[in-house]
Design a protein around this nucleic acid. Sequence first.
RNA 1: GCGCCCGUAGCUCAGAGGACAGAGCGUUGGCCUCCGGAGCCAAAGGCCGCAGGUUCGAAUCCUGCCGGGCGCGCCA
Length: 609
Amino acid sequence: MRNLKAELQRALEQALALLGVEESVDVPVQPTPPDRPGDYGTPVAFSLARVLRRPPAEIAQELAARVCLPPGVVGAEAAGGYVNFTVGLGELVRAATEPLRPPAPVGRRVLVEHTSVNPNKELHVGHLRNIALGDALSRILRYAGYEVQVLNYIDDTGRQVAETLFAVERYGLRYDGVTKYDHWVGQAYVRLHREMEDPRLREELEAGVRAVLHRLEAGELRSAVERVLRAQLDTMWRLGAEYDALVWESDLVREGLLQQALALLEHTPYVQRPREGKYAGALVMDTSSFVQGLEDPYLVLVRSDGTATYPAKDIAFQFWKMGLLQGLGFRPFTRQPSGRLLYTSHPEGDRSVRFGGCEETINVIDATQSYPQRVVRTALAVAGRPDLAEGAHHLAYETVTLEGRRISGRRGHTVSVDEVLDEAHRRARAVVAEKNPEHPDPESAAEQVGIGAVRFAMVKTEPRRQIDFRWEQALSFDGDSGPYVQYAHARAASILRRAEEAGVLTEEPDFAQATEYERPVARALLDFPDVVAAAAAQRTPHVLAQYLLDLAAAWNAYYNARRPDGSPATPVLQAPPGLRGVRLALVRQVRDVLRTGLELLGVPAPEVM
RNA sequence: GCGCCCGUAGCUCAGAGGACAGAGCGUUGGCCUCCGGAGCCAAAGGCCGCAGGUUCGAAUCCUGCCGGGCGCGCCA
């Protein structure tokens, strides 16, 4: 697609040279507000006023007169201090309908870690936000030209897993074969936590959990963990998320990465092993020169009993991600629904299958983990690699609450992802039956709409805003919703189908016949490349989601446009030859951009719904 | 106490220092003369938390205050 903004920017820079501006100034080019003349404008004259010591309006006048217009731009006029450009209608629509091409590779490797759910219970709505964000961001970065690795961390030596497996053992539970497996083990976990509230049983239960923990660390219970993991993966896949590799915490430890990471830190001036006082016998890191606002800047890496803390393992993982450490083996784990192979770290894995070693990492983890994430970053600097610390990002999203309360897996105050998706499917199924009773495959459409509604709701707001999960909101099918965008897409697809039936699909467009009705849609289409670039640069999918809503709205308005006498203003198939070609090209581009954008968000784009 | 994040319409939210602050939901009133009404058009609704400051220009940047969320364990 032609980049008119960039061309105008260059033209303005040249014009500035003619005006005698030598130093390089930033030349912003922005779309003009609605109901203003022109398509693009610049306020650059304001910032020049000081340099040139002349009033902005005068500078704008002269700029408008002197600027050499790119082809197809038919006018430049000064309005106050602004210079506004009008693009010829035909050229605007032609530019907007040029085939979409993904950006060229940028030659940067970026590693995205997301999901990373404890393998001990079913996924809940809090995880939903993590997966929706992480998956969308991975897709966006990949499209934007990055070489992306998507990792899902399996904390198989954590307390939660130990508690769950211990509970199953203690209660002598046998799988009923009916309940989804992750839900089934999750029940045992909740049951154990109820029992743990009894102080008399505390010690006995604690001993049992510790015993399981040791077996986990020895890798003895891997297949039990794997069974839970596979059930969870079914939910992740149903959401449309896929990964490149699973990294097991036990492998990180067994392969000696933890020891290597500690060795890198140990001899730096920031890491010590105090002989007396509060931290006697432990290995601690002094973070005071990197993190402010801590009462106590010392962070324990290795406890006085010799066991490593969770942050220590996180640090080792981060070091590996950025190539500071090597040594994990990988082998194929399973094939994912799209056919993409999923690898897993494994003691017997192949060391030549290379993951990790990225100069940039994005850890998708909720904002309550900001401090540990900060520590991980700090550790890179402590290890003498402040350059790597620069590339270590934490995508901190705020937590999801449920009816205003914090989600608690232990107390069972949650709604599971499976439950949400089933309900979304049910509601969508009812709407499909009502709106499109002839639908050839209503179940599949309902699934796509349901998933789309849920995922879109999770990514349409800024990550750092807290969201409260509410059914009506997450499962809304109208207004600012996924199905609204999906519907706009299906409507465009439907017109193109009919055009094909009528044999006019490939009609040659005569852009000279374009009308003012096409202008807003064309302008919206031209924004797409910038939006994707912004989403990638800011590492947030919400800008793309907001854009898709705008584009869908512009397209729907176009579709429904009326002449002053009330007759349809923008028929496509009934339009005269030539204009019909223009409109078909526009509709095709609307469909393609909506589809591409939805795919980047991981929202299905059904042709019929 | 210290640190990080958030305060924009009744509610949920957009708004890379630029033009009169925009959507959706809800409310009220309209639109099947077309290709999908999960749609469209219109109305009503604002001290952009408060007070200063920087700037030609501030919802946006800075400072202070107020309100809300989160974090600060030899837990994970």
